[in-house]
Design a protein around this nucleic acid. Structure first.
Lengths: 140, 140
DNA sequence: CTCCGTGCAAAGCATTTGCATCCAT
DNA sequence: ATGGATGCAAATGCTTTGCACGGAG
């Protein structure tokens, strides 16, 4: 399997100019399982040494999401962003701790086919969201 | 099968005082497959004869959703409401026309069990949203 | 020089809240 | 009379836009 790309390389791959701000936003999101809102990203980055404008955070998140590097979620009525695999996958969203885990697609494909046959509805495999309780929360 | 309840009866069942405003909001939503935002509900009601305050629309929608009569969706960053069956079901959300169809639960229960066994994630059957293209849109 | 990204301030909007009024019990 | 429901206006808070500045090619 390929080595995970550092923020800089990921930006280049999708054709975005790597700037310090975009790098910082992307780096903050990489490895997080819980989506973050623009406000949260802005706050966290500014709590560390670097300064970054709120507007820039909003624009960077838009850019990265448009490029497919981030997926968007709705957290308490606000838009939140998570760094996701570019390969197809489904989202398992914990309503207790808000973390999102990616579900390998082979678990759902056959079911989606069945769903289509029963209902005539054509599901988009990458837009399947399952909410519930994650394993970590369930064990506490 | 029981006769469908008129708005007034549905309000009483969930313990909400039936007021003309709540009746109007609920009546507008009944039978619609596409969720409506508060602004849309307000606009539509006021285009007809009746007058209703925007704040009241927001409050009525909250009340009805809390009572379980309406389900909420995210439409273009805004909250939207749809009158749904109180029985468990899943939502098939068309990303083309925004309509939501209810999917009978028996199609998914076995798959959800399988998902749980594979991932340790405990899905909430009533919080499964599948996005894609509805049969009507697919045929055009 | 030119283009793109940034940052601040101001604007835009959906939603909520404060408060006085009104209605039904 | 009393508690809940309503409506307007104002406030709140997230997000976007206008515009000038700055840096890289």
């Amino acid at each position: 399997m390929p080595a995970p790309l550092v923020p800089d390389a990921q930006l280049r791959v999708v054709g975005l100019t790597p700037t310090p701000q975009r790098r910082a936003v992307l780096a903050l999101l990489i490895g997080r399982s819980r989506p973050l809102t623009a406000q949260e990203v802005h706050a966290e980055l500014n709590h560390s040494v670097q300064h970054i404008g709120l507007t820039t955070v909003y624009r960077a998140l838009h850019n990265l999401a448009d490029a497919g590097l981030l997926h968007t979620f709705e957290l308490d009525g606000q838009r939140a962003y998570r760094h996701c695999d570019t390969a197809p996958h489904q989202h398992l969203i914990c309503t207790r701790c808000d973390t999102v885990t990616e579900c390998p697609p082979d678990i759902v494909t056959s079911w989606l086919t069945e769903l289509h046959q029963h209902t005539g509805f054509t599901p988009r495999p990458d837009r399947l969201d399952v909410k519930g309780i994650c394993a970590a929360c369930a064990s506490t």
